[in-house]
Computed example of a mutant assay.
Amino acid sequence: MSGTTPRKPIRKAVFPVAGLGTRFLPATKAIPKEMLPVIDKPLIQYAVDEAREAGIEQLIFVTGRGKTAIVEHFDTAYELEHTMQERGKGLEVLDPTRIQPGNLVTVRQQVPMGLGHAIWCARAVVGDEPFAIFLPDEMMVGSPGCMKQMVEAYHQVGGNLISVLEVPREDVSSYGVIAPGARVSDSLTEVTGLVEKPKVADAPSNLIISGRYILQPEVMRTLEDQGKGAGGEIQLTDAMARMIGQQPFHAVTFAGRRFDCGSKTGFVEATLALALEREDMADDVRAIMRRLLDAQA
């Protein structure tokens, strides 16, 4: 793609939210894990807010059984709004949950066959446009948000992009890691390969793949004929690896923090970290933490 050819904007984002959330049972027996609150917003709301900040217009939720609460969260709650208005309460707190008509689409992943399969399920809605992917389990906190940083990089280099973070080298065996090529800037690096959970001695870098992607629509055709990979599932990482060398592929080092809200400890960490940044809560939360730590001493 030449520097003078305008790149298609990133207007669509896919949110794979069909997972069972078994690590949070029994809390997720009847409530999707994406609806578990970090302070006063469900996890999915943070990802949607990040998408909107980046200029994304259409939200595509890949859902499964028992996930209707996610869609309802972004619907209009007439009874709730009427009651709040009658009681003289403003509705501004609900503004982030309002989606323009037609801008929320759901598709079904009937069988859990992996992240790559979940993305492929959205192929008809994505069409021939580049698109973003958000893994809501990974909360990315920064200003600007992770996806906005990635969209800005996309306008510079085009092609496919993934977000990465630096971790201590001894931790790389727990993550997918990139093999870096030429450095475009301090935060933008060419990707020459992807390695899933390498041994520390074999890791090509300490840049781990985090849960944000911008991919070209050709990835859908790659996923179409892809066999099962690790865990007997269709892996998105395998499809991306096949596209390296065929299209530009870069990593954006996110200037911010990542919280692994797919784990219980990560969820607690995110809750505490965000609470400590809120003026209405920070002092009380610090006092509570000191009291609890003193009680454990």
Score class of each variant (00 low, 15 high):
113 M>I: 08
114 G>Q: 04
119 I>M: 03
153 A>D: 15
117 H>V: 10
139 M>S: 06
113 M>F: 03
137 D>M: 10
138 E>C: 04
143 S>P: 12
142 G>R: 08
144 P>H: 09
146 C>I: 03
151 V>N: 11
122 A>M: 07
130 P>C: 08
117 H>M: 14
112 P>L: 00
152 E>H: 14
120 W>P: 04
132 A>T: 01
146 C>F: 02
125 V>P: 01
141 V>E: 10
129 E>H: 01
111 V>H: 04
134 F>W: 05
116 G>M: 01
129 E>D: 06
133 I>V: 14
152 E>Y: 13
128 D>S: 12
110 Q>D: 15
146 C>M: 09
138 E>Y: 03
148 K>M: 14
113 M>K: 05
137 D>H: 11
153 A>Y: 14
153 A>P: 15
114 G>Y: 02
117 H>G: 06
147 M>Q: 09
124 A>L: 08
148 K>L: 12
130 P>H: 05
109 Q>M: 08
152 E>V: 15
150 M>D: 12
116 G>E: 00
134 F>Y: 07
145 G>T: 15
118 A>F: 01
130 P>T: 09
120 W>K: 02
139 M>W: 08
141 V>L: 09
133 I>L: 10
141 V>W: 06
122 A>V: 10
115 L>C: 02
149 Q>I: 07
116 G>N: 01
123 R>E: 12
115 L>H: 00
150 M>E: 13
131 F>G: 05
118 A>V: 02
124 A>Y: 12
120 W>D: 06
112 P>S: 00
121 C>M: 12
136 P>I: 08
